[in-house]
């Protein structure tokens, strides 16, 4: 290899390294986190969140392929796979197949792993929760109680000094039952609230759905429990659809409009038919 060839190949190698280094520098770090949810003590699911700092701002990252594991990152412990949506979230329900791994301990860990993409390297996230459950109940005088229990070894034990949200479940958000949104549990694991929302619109039977929640707790994750109570005001849903209106479909035009229109048509066309009759009369007069 002569001197010129050495310089040439060195330049090519340097250029390759520079491009590789540049392309690696272009990749942003992907941050993965995971939340555990237990709804009504029987539906358990995980929600993963993918975000990255791009141009100095955190942005939610869609279309990231994620694998969810329980306990360890073994193929046998794979719970499922999901892809993040536009909000950077991916959800899976914990399948019954994970029952054995779930029962091993009072504490369970979940792991998520992302696949390597053009934009991001492989990333991981994990969460460890202590198994817990919450139970909502009602007493006389519209008193609401929520009892929080955690699993210690094999025994359910009351948890004290945890904030529990007690609210009425509405379409998009929760409505406080009184002035205070959250209530701390006592030594028996019970949080109590008084229902002070009289005449609140319920369904057609006046039913409201009460909900007790532990939200984003570092130890227990997200727990919720619901109960339907007849404490609301009965609301009959009224719709103009299928009524006789100016905006209804054919066959549902207002009676007054039909009467008006048809009477005008009958009156005018009655005159026209009368006049056609007069032509017939003229013919008879001309023949006789």
């Amino acid at each position: 290899m002569n001197k010129h060839s050495k310089i040439f190949f060195t330049a090519i190698l340097l250029q390759f390294l520079a491009i590789t280094a540049f392309s690696q520098a272009e990749k942003n770090d992907l941050s993965l986190s995971i939340s555990y949810f237990n709804s009504n003590n029987h539906t358990q699911y995980l929600v993963a969140h993918a975000k990255s700092k791009i141009d100095g701002k955190f942005q939610m990252i869609p279309n990231i392929n994620l694998s969810f594991y329980i306990g360890s990152e073994d193929a046998a412990n794979l719970l499922g796979k999901a892809v993040t949506n536009d909000k950077g979230d991916a959800l899976i329900f914990i399948p019954p197949a994970a029952k054995d791994e779930w029962k091993k301990s009072a504490k369970v860990s979940f792991i998520i792993v992302s696949q390597k993409t053009k934009e991001f390297d492989e990333a991981k996230g994990n969460v460890e929760i202590t198994k817990a459950k919450i139970q909502i109940d009602t007493l006389a005088d519209k008193k609401i109680t929520a009892t929080l229990m955690e699993l210690k070894d094999t025994v359910w034990t009351a948890v004290k000094a945890i904030d529990v949200k007690i609210a009425i479940k509405r379409l998009d958000a929760d409505l406080n039952v009184a002035e205070t949104p959250t209530y701390a549990t006592d030594s028996l694991g019970v949080a109590s609230a008084d229902f002070k929302r009289d005449s609140l619109p319920g369904d057609s039977k006046g039913n409201l759905t009460l909900i007790a929640k532990v939200e984003d707790n570092d130890v227990y994750g997200n727990l919720s429990s619901e109960k339907v109570v007849p404490w609301g005001k009965s609301i009959k849903y009224y719709t103009e659809f299928d009524k006789r209106t100016l905006f209804a479909r054919r066959g549902k035009s207002p009676i007054w409009l039909e009467l008006l229109a048809y009477s005008i048509v009958v009156a005018v066309w009655g005159i026209l038919f009368y006049l056609i009759g007069q032509i017939k009369k003229l013919k008879q007069l001309g023949v006789s």
Partner: peptide, 18 residues
Amino acid sequence: FWKNTAAQIHISEKAINI
């Protein structure tokens, strides 16, 4: 059929007015 009779003229005029 038009014979220009008084009866025909009457009917025709009435029809035109209507």
